[in-house]
Amino acid sequence: MRIHYLIDEGGGCAHVRCVLPSVELARRGHQIDGGWGVPLTDDVDVVVGIRVWQETSSVEWQRLAAEGRTLIYDLDDNLFDIDPANVGPYSAYTPQALARVAANLEVATAVTVSTEPLAEVVSRYNPNVFVLENTVDGSLLHWQRPQRDRVTIGWAGSACHDADWASARRPLAAFFAKTPTVDLHLVGGDYRALLNRPDARRTDFAAAGDYHRSIDFDIAVIPLSWHRFNRSKSDLKLIEFSALGIPTVAADYGPYSRIEHGRTGFLVNQDHEWSKYLRMLVNDPQLRAEVGERAREWAAGRTIQGNAHRWEETYAAVVAARVGGASYQWPELSAGLS
Rank of each mutant, 00 (worst) to 15 (best):
G68P: 07
E67A: 07
V59H: 06
T41P: 06
V38E: 12
L118G: 00
W36I: 08
V122F: 03
E120I: 03
D81H: 09
I50R: 10
D33I: 09
E55Y: 05
I72M: 13
A110E: 03
Y90T: 12
E60I: 06
V46A: 09
E67R: 11
V44A: 10
G68R: 11
D42H: 12
V111W: 06
P127G: 01
T70Y: 00
G35C: 08
I82C: 01
C18V: 15
R63F: 03
V87G: 02
L40A: 12
S22K: 15
V107D: 05
A119V: 05
W61Q: 09
Y90D: 08
I50Y: 12
P95M: 07
E120C: 00
V19M: 14
D43Y: 09
E120H: 08
L118K: 04
A92H: 10
G35S: 11
Y73H: 12
R28T: 13
D45C: 11
T70K: 00
G49P: 03
N128C: 00
W61L: 06
V44I: 15
V107P: 02
G88R: 12
V52M: 11
G29P: 13
S114V: 15
A65H: 09
E116A: 11
I82V: 13
W53E: 14
F130Q: 03
V47G: 00
R27G: 15
Y125A: 03
Q62S: 08
V111F: 02
V38S: 03
L79V: 10
V38L: 14
Q62P: 00
V87S: 05
R69T: 08
V107F: 01
L132G: 03
V136Q: 11
R17D: 13
V48Q: 07
L79D: 04
D42F: 04
V23G: 07
S58N: 09
V121H: 02
S114P: 01
D42S: 15
E60C: 04
G37L: 07
L105N: 02
P84D: 05
E24P: 06
T56Q: 15
P39M: 08
S123N: 02
R124N: 10
D81K: 09
I50H: 15
S58H: 04
Y125E: 00
E106Q: 14
D81R: 13
D45Y: 10
G35T: 14
G138V: 06
A92R: 12
P117R: 01
S123E: 09
F130E: 06
Q62G: 03
V47H: 08
S91I: 04
D33F: 10
